[in-house]
Design a protein around this nucleic acid. Structure first.
Lengths: 150, 150
DNA sequence: ATAGATAGTTCAATTATTGAACAGTTAAAA
DNA sequence: TTTTAACTGTTCAATAATTGAACTATCTAT
């Protein structure tokens, strides 16, 4: 790769990352219709798919302090969307799960987000979008490795 | 594309978007070393590359209200990093440009971010990353079109 | 002329996040 | 065994970012 080419690629990558993220979050927000904030949706999503989810884990994944997670969780807990259950073996740990109401709201909103993303993805040839996601996963792994070093 | 395959792709796309963004922002923040916040960096970057940049334009690109932009801009202006110049033909409009100090700080931080992104991108074959960016640009265009409709 | 739109700002209220201190619990060392 | 250190989650005050409404100044179209 020539030097010029790399600089161009880097620049386009940075700009695209920014632009796609902003537009994507804006469209997600529109779908959520102020029933949930974007981060609340992602929190429910993470709890939904994660066995034995804890605050510490959420803090790592969302890259915020644990006290911020407590605030987010408590707000969802106040709305009876999630449950807190103490581990009986290690009584420091609190596991987070969706309540029935939380699951229902999550499923409802998830469907809208899925439809949105599906409407984007299906505009591509299968091969192109699969290749894209494959490279995206490699990037994710590289970033994970970079953070490990930290 | 089979139905199952689409749902899988959608799910992986959503999760990757989230994960890559969080890790990316965290690494960018690390490079900025609290000289600038991430959004302050992106603001300087946008002003740097944009002829006749205005608050209204920034509000649209960053997807926040104009009053939020005023706050961001004023904070950078207080640090003498940007200048405000009134349009002589339309005196409502204020153009934003980098001061000498702003340009210097931007260039310094930009280099660190570029090195970070370059270290990621150069782990790929040229063809793979070019294809990735090409698809990324198509996604960006699709999202722009979706927002236009709104 | 005037009515309506536009650009940017101010300010109070809301929201999210941090950092430090804390309680309770567990694991490891002396 | 006792003590020390580490870990989990929470509270709370301080900080930062964002919104929404009201406002000034300016421009455009009729």
């Amino acid at each position: 790769m020539s030097q010029l080419s790399i600089k161009e690629l880097v620049d386009r990558y940075i700009d695209l990352t920014f632009a796609v993220h902003k537009k994507g979050e804006s469209l997600v927000k529109e779908q959520l219709q102020s029933e949930l904030s974007n981060d609340q949706f992602y929190t429910l999503k993470y709890i939904y798919k994660t066995e034995n989810c804890t605050s510490t884990e959420l803090a790592k994944v969302f890259d915020v302090k644990k006290s911020a997670i407590t605030a987010v969780i408590t707000k969802l807990w106040d709305q009876d969307l999630i449950e807190r259950t103490r581990d009986q073996n290690d009584r420091r740990v609190v596991y987070l799960t969706l309540t029935e109401a939380g699951l229902e709201l999550y499923k409802k909103t998830e469907e809208r987000i899925y439809n949105l993303v599906e409407s984007i993805i299906t505009q591509f040839e299968e091969q192109e979008i699969k290749q894209f996601i494959e490279t995206y996963e490699k990037i994710n792994n590289i970033l994970s490795a970079l953070q490990e070093k930290q």
